[in-house]
């Protein structure tokens, strides 16, 4: 499933980054890499913007960018 489908408080392990360059490099440099754990801390009311925790770093992403990250949801 894609990162934008996770709800607040849910987490997952990244399995693939679908984004193309230069967004992909940007995401990688922020720490979004395969095998890393991401957690959705918050999103805005309309789910336009997400606040993601990646390894202790808070990153804000839009729905469009979150959609590019494939995750395996943790139960």
């Amino acid at each position: 499933m894609r990162l934008n489908k996770l709800n607040i408080g849910e987490s997952g392990i990244i399995t693939k980054i679908h984004a193309k360059e230069p967004l992909k490099s940007k995401l990688l440099s922020m720490g979004f890499a395969r095998g890393e754990r991401v957690k959705v801390l918050k999103h805005t009311l309309a789910k336009n913007t997400f606040d993601i925790d990646i390894n202790g770093v808070n990153v804000a992403l839009r729905d469009e960018e979150a959609r590019e990250i494939e995750v395996m949801k943790e139960s």
Partner: peptide
């Protein structure tokens, strides 16, 4: 393409 939005929320 619209500009992507990836922004760190610092402590």
């Amino acid at each position: 393409e619209p500009e992507p939005f990836v922004m760190e929320l610092p402590k």
